[in-house]
Design a protein around this nucleic acid. Structure first.
Length: 1049
RNA sequence: GGGCCUGUAGCUCAGUCGGUUAGAGCACUGUGCUGAUAACGCAGGGGUCACUGGUUCGAGUCCAGUCAGGCCCA
């Protein structure tokens, strides 16, 4: 016996049962153990930061990781699925700062770095329970017990080892660069961090006069969106080759002034005043070089010559005035100019974002808050030409939302540019899904590689292991705890490698014997996560053997926003360290959008709780939806309803086929008979052909990391299994004798269900387990304990019959036309008809009708089917030249060939073509033979016939209902009423009955005429015309005209 | 401003090497069927294949440009 299955199902409950089974039998651990010795498949888990609850987008990534790993296990691969946690960095610090109510680094230092970091360490695991619960519930199998943790000393030590290698290769340097800097967090941000924070924002847009020293009443007009940088101005840049003009601009009260701007921007600058101005001079930008102007502010006196015009190619005439204000402390281009022209660097903003003391009126203000006051000041002094606002995108801190500052600071870099060629070359070895990322987003990023800004001036992170001598300035990178101990002259094995403890370790300078102290910086957290490929194994201090088999990864998968995050940090570190790619295959997932098409993110607060979906529809449906919703790389909108559709369309369809099978197999006491070749019917052969073609295609999709084509075709198959195979096979299961045909039907359906269970196991692990346990384990003690420990199904190539598959699609089309014709005629399917005749447009397809006559007659409830013969039938013919075949053959001649074919006598040509013979056409004096498969023959019914047609296909019904047919129809109606009554009476499927009926004369006559048929259909051992006995279940049918009485026999 | 992606029915998506009548599911309406089904069959309404131009005998498909959206970078 199979465990009985109800068609009514609570899928989340079924899933809980599977979870319990996995837990009880430790199935996950066994997926690793039982495959030991198999080929190795290497997977890297991109460590999430567990500083918030996981959302649907996390489920997406975890589902896509899991699906290919489960598939590989079933293929016999051994996989170490080690989890990992990203635990360092600003995200963690900011959570703690929020709790403590801190807003600046000074508060952290006053609070104490040791205590602060202790809180950071604790907060990292605050949400870990949520992650673990969700991970288990969505069936993402990953080893969280032995997960790597980026804050562990061993992990940090490995990171140090990498950094020392880079140091020794001369890849780490301290440079002065204008960085994107968060004044609130007090640290520069890496480019990939900056990238996450671009927002549309409104800024001032000001046009300012800079009066020339040597030309009275004349001023340079500059444009800026950052008035706060004006006190740091040291020069103005003009493009050497752009044409500039000096214009006379009228002022109120009859006065006027002269302004200099770029000629192409003239109208844009003066707008409605354009007709009032007068160009008095025109000259190239070069001519402006060296012209001195009066500084706007004099708070900070420059220590070098300043306030004159310089020339630069980066000046554009897209917007502004063509004259660019230069503040080297606050812009990369500006800093470049400062170097070139030896300009002074005036820094008017402190690292905490406040204005320096020297700028007295606004000292201590947050830099951006000074904008309106500076504008006001310039207006009062008549230096403001125009002040308005301007909407553009500007970077904000991705964590705290503070506007970022372009700010000149010393910091540490990794010279990735030195290995740019290798970064690009090794990318060629990586298989990207979707493919365009390889040379698109990722490839372009590598081509335009800039050095990796490594340093972070923060507290909770991996310390940069560089010590500097206080005496001679010598720098040394430490690559292990042992080295640290040795240089410190004491055993530091128990030292917490975090700040502040590591900062307290002083070393002896190998050059001068002086005292060395660690530099204050931490490293970028992206370096932490990118280092997991070696640091998760505490390599090279341990596990040197393991690393040989665990690098590079066969597969990684994250959302597309990781292209410049984790994917890059993995790739860059592996390239610099091993000159090898870090991963061979990578799936980049699109973003999950909310119902309104917005990105789901914590900062937006529009995260859909995955638990809602799981509790309503189950994790399988959620997973299946994510796999089938569209190409993985594209963003998808997400809602509860879309997942619900998956349940109705696929899960329940499959479930009901399963429930049907179990119900009837139990009634018949059926068991699979392994090794025996059943007497398959044509329909069985077709289903097996489709099934094995499915196995073939799905397998290929899994091999190609194509989740979409690993899942969607299964839906299509199950749909056909349910709505064609089962529908047409039902009677085979119902019939009472247990013959070979019945066995073949069971065998076929069983094979289909078991195979589907395995095919969906990677994607829908719970449903697959339920089917497998009940269908396989219950009858085969020796079978693998779980579907996830079972072997992947093999393709029986011999079972695949592509011709049969095509024929069956044609049968389905003809059936559909037959139903349509019935619909037109208004004759219900239960009423048998004498004949259906079909037209098929191509010679080769004609024999489909006789070959599948059984299916067609049963489905359409007709006594016979045939092909329309043509001559003498009530149809006319037309020819449709097929452009695909003829166009490719005749190219430019096609239109004329087409005309020639259409000009032929259709009757005559059709007869030849349907007989498989070519026809001749003449075009431009040449004769061409047109082959039968180059023309479609269409038949149209003359009026009066009940037909339905589509393209070359047509179904015609003989709608005459003879008395015999009518009687048979009534008998079938009667059967239907009795079945309904059985159901109402609450009888079991297999219960035999004694049947009593009272019906009008015509019905009674039909029932008696088909007495044997009726009794067999309704499982009646006795059928009596007359009043039912007292104790019978009595009901009425046919609007009260028929009374039925049932007694369980 | 640059790079990448997307634009097909009310919604979610297919659409092969370019082939002349562009499909499916959901939703809606009608109708039929049902002792597996939360179903299913059939029919109907619903399309400027974002737009413009080009290549071609033929363009949803290829090319160029434009527009809109998304992501990434300036």
């Amino acid at each position: 016996m199979f465990r009985p299955v109800s068609p009514q199902v609570n899928l989340p409950k079924v899933e809980e049962q599977a979870l319990a089974l996995w837990r009880k039998h430790d199935i996950f651990r066994k997926t690793e153990e039982t495959r030991r010795g198999g080929p190795e498949f290497v997977f890297y888990e991109g460590p999430p930061t567990a500083n918030g609850k996981p959302g649907v987008h996390h489920v997406l990534a975890r589902a896509f990781k899991d699906i290919f790993l489960r598939y590989r296990v079933m293929r016999g691969y051994h996989i170490i699925r080690r989890g990992g946690w990203d635990t360092h960095g600003l995200p963690v610090e900011i959570e703690v700062e929020k709790k403590l109510g801190f807003t600046s680094k000074r508060q952290i230092e006053a609070f104490g770095v040791a205590e602060f970091n202790k809180l950071c360490r604790q907060s990292v695991f605050e949400y870990i329970q949520d992650w673990e619960n969700l991970t288990e519930r969505i069936a993402y199998w990953v080893d969280l017990e032995n997960a790597y943790v980026t804050y562990h000393n061993e992990y940090i030590e490995s990171v140090w080892w990498i950094l020392k290698r880079f140091w020794e290769d001369g890849l780490i340097y301290r440079g002065h660069k204008v960085v994107t800097y968060c004044p609130r967090c007090g640290t520069p941000l890496a480019d990939h961090e900056v990238a996450q924070g671009y927002r549309e924002t409104e800024d001032p847009s000001v046009y300012v006069r800079l009066p020339l020293k040597d030309e009275p009443d004349t001023a340079l007009l500059v444009w800026t969106t950052t008035p706060w940088t004006l006190p740091a101005n040291v020069a103005v840049a003009a493009h050497p080759d752009v044409t500039y003009v000096k214009v006379r601009h009228p002022l109120p009260e009859g006065e006027h002034e002269y302004l200099i701007v770029a000629q192409p921007l003239l109208e844009q600058v003066f707008r409605d005043e354009a007709d009032k101005i007068e160009v008095v001079a025109e000259f190239p930008g070069k001519a402006l070089k060296g012209k001195r102007y009066q500084p706007l502010f004099t708070f900070v006196p420059p220590e070098k010559p300043a306030h004159f015009v310089v020339l630069a190619d980066f000046v554009t005439t897209e917007d502004g005035t063509g004259l660019v204000h230069m503040a080297p402390a606050f812009g990369a281009d500006d800093m470049e100019m400062a170097r070139k022209y030896d300009l002074p660097i005036i820094n008017t903003v402190k690292p905490d974002g406040t204005i320096v003391e020297a700028v007295r009126p606004w000292a201590g203000m947050f830099f951006k808050d000074a904008d309106p006051l500076i504008i006001e000041d310039l207006q009062k002094r008549g230096l403001m030409f125009r002040a308005e606002t301007y909407t553009h995108t500007y970077p904000f801190c991705w964590r705290c939302g503070t506007p970022l500052l372009y700010y000149a600071r010393p910091t540490w870099y990794i010279r990735t540019t030195a290995k740019k060629d290798r970064l690009v070359a090794l990318n060629e070895q990586i298989n990207w899904v979707p493919a365009h990322i390889k040379h698109g987003r990722f490839g372009n990023w590598l081509e335009n590689n800039i050095d990796w800004a490594l340093g972070r001036e923060r507290y909770w992170g991996t310390p940069l292991p560089v010590w500097q001598c206080q005496e001679c300035g010598h720098q040394h990178a430490v690559g292990s705890v042992a080295e640290l101990s040795e240089m410190a002259g004491r055993d530091l094995g128990g030292l917490d490698l975090h700040r502040p403890y590591v900062d307290e370790v002083t070393l002896t300078c190998p050059q001068c014997g002086g005292t060395m102290k660690r530099v204050p910086e931490l490293i970028d957290v992206w370096f932490d996560s990118g280092a997991m490929q070696v640091a998760q194994w505490h390599y090279p201090f341990e596990n040197q053997e393991i690393l040989k088999t665990q690098h590079p990864a066969d597969y990684v998968c994250e959302a597309v926003d990781q292209t410049r995050g984790w994917f890059y940090s993995l790739h860059a570190i592996s390239t610099l360290l091993f000159d090898k790619p870090a991963f061979k295959n990578v799936v980049c997932l699109g973003l999950i959008l909310d119902e309104n098409g917005y990105k789901m993110s914590k900062s937006r607060g529009n995260i859909v709780d995955p638990w809602d979906v799981i509790n309503t529809h189950g994790a399988d449906a959620l997973r299946w939806y994510l796999f089938t919703a569209g190409p993985p790389g594209e963003s998808k909108r997400f809602s509860l309803n879309l997942v619900g559709e998956t349940v109705r369309r696929f899960s329940l369809t499959l479930w009901n086929v399963y429930a049907f099978f179990v119900t009837y197999a139990n009634l018949d006491g059926w068991r699979p008979r392994p090794g025996e070749q059943p007497a398959y019917s044509e329909l069985d052969r077709w289903l097996r052909s489709e099934l094995h073609a499915l196995v073939r295609d799905v397998t290929a999709a899994y091999e190609a990391y194509d989740a979409l084509n690993a899942t969607r075709p299964v839906e299509r198959f199950v749909e056909r299994l349910s709505n064609w195979y089962l529908r047409r096979s039902r009677r085979r299961f119902w019939k009472s004798e247990a013959d070979e045909d019945k066995h073949a039907a069971y065998s076929t359906l069983y094979e289909a269900l078991v195979t589907v269970a395995k095919l969906i196991a990677p994607a829908m692990p719970f449903m697959a387990e339920e089917l497998y346990q009940n269908l396989v384990r219950s009858v085969d003690e020796g079978a693998a304990e779980s579907v996830h420990l079972a072997d992947w199904p093999t393709v029986d190539e011999a079972a695949i019959d592509e011709k049969l598959n095509q024929e069956m699609s044609l049968v389905l089309k003809l059936v559909s036309l037959g139903h349509a014709a019935r619909n037109k005629a208004g004759i219900k399917v239960r009423q048998p008809l004498r004949e259906a005749a079909f037209a098929v447009g191509r010679a080769g397809e004609q024999d489909v009708v006789p070959r599948h006559a059984d299916l067609l007659t049963e489905e359409l409830n007709v006594k016979q089917v045939r092909v329309l013969s043509g001559q003498g039938e009530a149809v006319s013919y037309s020819l449709k030249p097929l452009p695909k075949q003829l166009g490719q053959k005749y190219k430019g001649l096609f239109p004329k060939v087409r005309q020639a074919i259409l000009a032929l006598d259709a009757e005559e040509a059709a007869a030849k073509l349907l007989a498989g013979q070519p026809i001749q056409v003449e075009v431009e004096g040449q004769t061409y033979a047109i082959l039968p498969d180059e023309v479609e023959v269409r038949m149209e019914a003359h009026s009066g016939l009940t037909v339905a047609s589509e393209g070359a296909y047509l179904a015609a019904l003989d709608t005459e209902i003879t008395p015999e047919l009518r009687q048979e129809g009534l008998a079938r109606d009667f059967v239907r009423w009795v079945q309904d009554a059985r159901k109402k009476a609450g009888l079991e499927l297999s219960d035999r009955i004694r049947l009593f009926y009272q019906a009008p004369e015509e019905v009674a006559a039909a029932v008696e005429a088909f007495r044997e048929y009726v009794m067999a259909e309704v499982l009646a051992v006795e059928m009596t015309a007359g009043a039912p006995p007292e104790d019978a279940f009595v009901t009425e049918a046919s609007g009260g005209k028929v009374t039925l009485g049932l007694l369980k026999a």
